[in-house]
Design a protein around this nucleic acid. Structure first.
Lengths: 223, 223
DNA sequence: CTCTGTGAACGACTTCACAGCA
DNA sequence: TGCTGTGAAGTCGTTCACAGAG
């Protein structure tokens, strides 16, 4: 089961496993079974074992998985054993909040610069990051070897900014604009439409039958 | 195909269809084919038709779908033909950004109150919303008939806040804390883990083979 | 006896292909 | 001829169930 292309749902859960393992390590837990990992994430134990099997054999029968080594493996697989330089495009309310968000840094993502077109925003420092004018995009990307970008601009500007990013060599985009971005085949996009997320809840709560919240968590959405 | 339980992926795409239809209406477009809708969203035309078939027969052979009536239908189905009152828990950087975010209001979600435990935050007004102390949660929820909540508190507090929300009658939670929340079966959760989203991009870009970005957009993630 | 790794069975979603209406 | 609605086929992911290691 190794050497194959990894299904998107597996990669998604890999992040969940890593997150949980990090909490376990913080609590001093040294080993965990597939059932132990699964339980706290509302997943089945078989699912956990099948997922891990995509990457190798990490567990020992009768024992389970060793937390610390597994954390190392997962970080390496996800690529977060090294720090990634990231840029943000758009320094509006959402963009500035993302600049201040500490969760990125904790996972190994460093926002090295932010960009905007508005002269009232250029030059400001937010969360330790300087806001620059869009025209400096290419040189900053080249200078820091940036491959990931966060897009938090108004929807009307999203595709245009995306084109600039792709031309400048960006390979992955986290998109907060409510638009489906068109990119070349070698540039991946992950959409995060906050209003649409609430809309999904609206549907579930409105349809109002009886649903399992646990089964609901972590499904659907982007990939 | 009507009257059945709707698959989660279909509901997710329903939000995309609605979003796109609203842009088309803004541009004065009156009708659209399944292919027209599909193209701009990187989906197949057959997928669009199958999805719509879950809810009824909206199109006319040889013509396509009428944009405006379809918008009305979709809003009704998603439950956003009426305004929803929403509360936010946690008035840190992310919480305050969400209070200022205009995208919610545009989709029919009104944040009527925010809550925090910190006395330095209680009493402040952010984006037109007053920050109150958590202890006022139950009465505000009852007063405004609130059923949806946004959680943007530190991970250590997330489960505890969730318990309070569930006890107070909340039925849907948009969770920005990097934790898997445990809730009763009648409370739905949608997780939004921003760092994990970047991690997914890290995996794709790091694995670096050649992938289709279009096919990548909108898959995976939550449901 | 516990718990992993995995083929096989199952179920869910997507794509195909075409009948039928305009 | 253009495009929808839909059974049938196909693909993908999950769950089951058990052999085998510790």
């Amino acid at each position: 089961m190794k050497g194959q292309a990894i299904p998107a749902p597996v990669v998604r859960r890999l992040s969940l496993y890593l997150r949980q393992l990090e909490y376990l390590a913080t609590d001093g837990v040294e080993k965990v079974s597939s059932l132990g990992l699964a339980g706290s994430l509302n997943i089945t134990a078989a699912q956990v074992r099948k997922d891990l099997a995509c990457f190798g054999q990490f567990g020992r029968p009768g024992v389970g998985y060793l937390v610390k080594p597994l954390i190392g493996e997962f970080r390496r697989i996800l690529g977060t054993d090294k720090t990634w330089n990231v840029i943000a495009v758009g320094a509006g309310d959402l963009g500035r909040a993302l600049l201040r968000y500490k969760g990125f840094r904790r996972k190994g993502f460093r926002i090295v610069a932010a960009f905007d077109v508005s002269q009232t925003k250029v030059g400001r420092v937010v969360g330790g990051t300087v806001v620059r004018h869009i025209r400096e995009l290419p040189e900053v990307i080249a200078e820091h070897g940036v491959r990931l970008a966060v897009v938090a601009v108004p929807v009307q500007a999203a595709q245009e900014m995306t084109n600039l990013l792709c031309a400048a060599g960006i390979k992955g985009i986290l998109n907060f604009a409510p638009a489906t971005l068109q990119t070349p085949p070698d540039v991946a996009v992950r959409p995060v439409d906050l209003a649409a997320e609430l809309e999904q809840l609206s549907f579930i709560v409105g349809s109002a039958a009886s649903e399992r919240s646990a089964g609901m968590q972590g499904m659907g959405s982007r990939g």
